[in-house]
Design a protein around this nucleic acid. Sequence first.
DNA 1: AGGTATGATTTCAA
DNA 2: TTGAAATCATACCT
Length: 419
Amino acid sequence: MDDQTRMLAGLAGLGGLSQGDVGDSVRKQLGQPQQDIGDILQQIMAITDESLDEAQARKHALNCHRMKPALFSVLCEIKEKTVLSIRGIQDEDPPDPQIMRLDNMLLAEGVSGPEKGGGSAAAAAAAAAAGGSPGADGGIEHSDYRAKLAQIRQIYHSELEKYEQACSEFTNHVMNLLREQSRTRPISPKEIERMVAIIHRKFSSIQMQLKQSTCEAVMILRSRFLDARRKRRNFNKQATEVLNEYFYSHLSNPYPSEEAKEELAKKCAITVSQVSNWFGNKRIRYKKNIGKFQEEANLYAVKTAVDAASVSAQASQANSPATPKSGSSGSYSLSHAGDAEAVAYLGLRPSNLNGAGEAVLNIAPSLQPQVDTLHRATHLTAGYEELTASALYTPHRLHTSNSWQDTTHPSSVTSGTRL
DNA sequence: AGGTATGATTTCAA
DNA sequence: TTGAAATCATACCT
């Protein structure tokens, strides 16, 4: 009880502060211990209204107060005890595993880490995420993805910078404050260090939030742009038809050139890499089970034949030399030209066979189906039913060779389409 | 629900 | 880099 009174008195004295009346106030307050705390509070509050000069003057007065050394030593003692008890609580912080995980993730995604150019890490990550699929990756989505990722990266870095700046500013501020205060109360450099560490910890927890939300954003972006590609959607009927038409009319060499792929992609409203995928799948699946595709092959052969026939019919009707422009139903000028070229190649250079007899012997059988198709298409005027009745494509031709490339020497046969 | 078809991805070789 | 082959993952059909 008595102690308390004395403390209050001390407080009041520090609050009131004017050197002369400290003793008076103590005496006064000892006399009437219940002297309002309100009064003291008022005195404290009054400080805020003081001008800076006044405050400085009071501070100076405090520093010169005769009680100051005594008070200081008491404070030192109390401090020693509390600091010792605090010390046990907050030792050095262990490296936070979660923040490390986030850092790794951001690095892997190309958000953090070196930010040169478009962000090489980001580009690599995007490429990796795009999958090692050969050929051009579907342009639009990826540039879009990269742009969005760059945006995230930019925001992340600017925010991070802001945080860092704020952190250092605040740290400086606190250090100055502490240094200032160290004149009136005991503050060891170690304490300042600890304080700085606390501030840093606080800020790093804010940073962690930033990193976390950045990670989330990247994940969402990824799932929206990249993983979405895995969600398979069948091509529409028209697209499959276009692709199949090309495939079966180029059965001897179903390797569309880059230009042809582009054209097909445009026609089917899909990407070039999707065209590549489709042909890759088609080739392998056709080869694996030709029997299964027989019907389909016939169907498209008829289709092609009908198209070609209608073209030739139109041409003869118009009584003009057949200039094979792409026919009625948008059939391929490219495809027919290619096969015609192959036929022309065989027909026009019989003398060359001597030189490359073997090669031509290999070429001829595999070309036959298409030659047949062409022949029938151009020379049969009626009776398509005959076509459907017999197998237009003889599977064993492929079986014997087991590979398009082995037998057909595609680059030489269809040089028209590939070169 | 289970089987098949099909677009995409991965791995490997040339 | 491209394509073959294997495989995955999903759509679609029964």
